[in-house]
Nucleic acid binder design. Sequence first.
DNA 1: CACGGCTCTCGACAAAAGTCAAATCAGGAA
DNA 2: TTCCTGATTTGACTTTTGTCGAGAGCCGTG
Lengths: 321, 321
Amino acid sequence: MAIRPAEQLIHKAAWLYYAHGLRQDEVANLLKISRASVAMYLRKARETGIVNISTSTQLFTDDVMAREVEDAFKLDAVWIAPENAYVADPSTDIAVLAASVFLELVKKGDRIGVAWGRTVYTIADIMSYADLQDVTVVQLCGNLGAPYSYRPDQCTMEIARRLNARGLNFYAPLVLSTEALAQGLRAEPVIRDQLAGISDCDLALYSVGAVDADSHLVKCGALTPAEMEALRKEGAAGVIAGQIIDASGEALDCSYNRRVISAELASLRAIGKRLMVVQEDTKFEPLLAAIAGGLCTHLVIGAHMAERLLQQAGAASKKAS
Amino acid sequence: MAIRPAEQLIHKAAWLYYAHGLRQDEVANLLKISRASVAMYLRKARETGIVNISTSTQLFTDDVMAREVEDAFKLDAVWIAPENAYVADPSTDIAVLAASVFLELVKKGDRIGVAWGRTVYTIADIMSYADLQDVTVVQLCGNLGAPYSYRPDQCTMEIARRLNARGLNFYAPLVLSTEALAQGLRAEPVIRDQLAGISDCDLALYSVGAVDADSHLVKCGALTPAEMEALRKEGAAGVIAGQIIDASGEALDCSYNRRVISAELASLRAIGKRLMVVQEDTKFEPLLAAIAGGLCTHLVIGAHMAERLLQQAGAASKKAS
DNA sequence: CACGGCTCTCGACAAAAGTCAAATCAGGAA
DNA sequence: TTCCTGATTTGACTTTTGTCGAGAGCCGTG
């Protein structure tokens, strides 16, 4: 990013206003510009992440329920968005929380893996800007050809843009028509390197998909509704980074999975912090599968989903005893 | 800190306002309280660090001069406060910058060593609040009996308070009247443990003192002006955490140093990030000594001091060639 | 049970910040 | 040079926010 003459001014204005606590008109006088300009600069400063306004997400982890979920499923940290109220759209609430949590987890110099989906894109879309240095955002799975508004590469790039980070895209389709072609492509140096680099990530951000006709895999034409239904009968429980997993969180042994170009589940598990965000209550089974497979260490969910998880955990422990 | 009933409300208000971007009256409606209360809550939220507003300190490192100082003295990072203008009091400017830098360097779970002095106390005083978890602030040196407004323990506790962290004080005088007593006290388990724990710190914050009659050591009665003058003749170049160092940054071999209860210089050097802040231009020699002794990796200074450092470096390299 | 003393809350006003159309400026093309 | 284009800046206006004193609720005490 070239140093535009205004950049310096924006920074100074932000510094005087936010760090020194001067009023806008005082800043305007010092910098010899009009107050209106100062107001404009400050907006830009916020938009570009020169100033960071973050609210502690404590409240959502402090919750008793969050602790219970943590303990029941052996997760590192759980955030629960209260669904009872306040905001019009409850799923937005989860995304806003997820964005805050995500920004709290990211550190300078980190390498971040990002998958794709409506949830991830929503998070990217509402996430505030930050001025992280030396951050790399890598795409965890191949692209879907479909002209969707939240394609894997778009999720990656949008998040990279917000963080002022490098974005590394995956120049391969998510799913190919033959296993041989997929194998060949995975062996391609460019692709191979990127796949190998995934386990070096410090942080992963993804959601889990449902195995039904609403899945993006179906909507984007990677699978027909009938195929999806067939996979479900074979034991498919969820979709992670474009791959089908079974109830134990392992990749399902099926033709589709063998034709996919995406991060190995083992690589994902090698990532220190795996942040999973689930908005829809219908994704209960997929989430259980993902947790069972050790695919998430940090979890952001709504209150309703948390309740169901605890019920499940209660039932399981009762059965065990 | 007990969970007061309002705490929850403050948090919710802050969340809706800052994270969701609602207006104060919207928040007031949702929470069924008056807008005035919302405004009050939000102020409290800022004061307690529930929301964090931080400005990137990029600008001050991006500076060409800062890079030159970094290279010339092999420091990890240097921030230079422009002295030309803007704010009434230039030394405040350095402290504000230092506080921002400090907050940027602190991470969750860190252990932080804090020394004492006017500079450190000024920083503590203007530092904004933060809600760090699991942070411990330890005092690097013994206390001065003098009823000074910035005693070592006050610096430590104030910073701990601002960060919402634990504060570990040093229950010993900085300097004793005999070497034997000092040795005995250092061997005391309480003191010994604390001294031993200093090298485990992740971050240290201190300034360097001048060897003159204005020094706190003199003002607080630890040394007479005459003794100070004598020490200077013996090669004293600066004061770090209550100890006298020579021009090479090593502890001066003198009775005073042997009577001091403070962090060993070796322990200080074992700390990963050593943030030194120097406000006064007169502390040029002491700063050089501290740098020579490897007592700082991160440095916050004013523009004028930076110029002098670069001159010095230029002269030294010319002499060497 | 009434009484301070306390904190929390509210309404109204004053101050500050956000916004927008019009004016200005810089830089390039004719 | 002059004119045009697009971005930046400004003054005037509107909306939003901060603040203050008054009042309401709460609790322990006499």
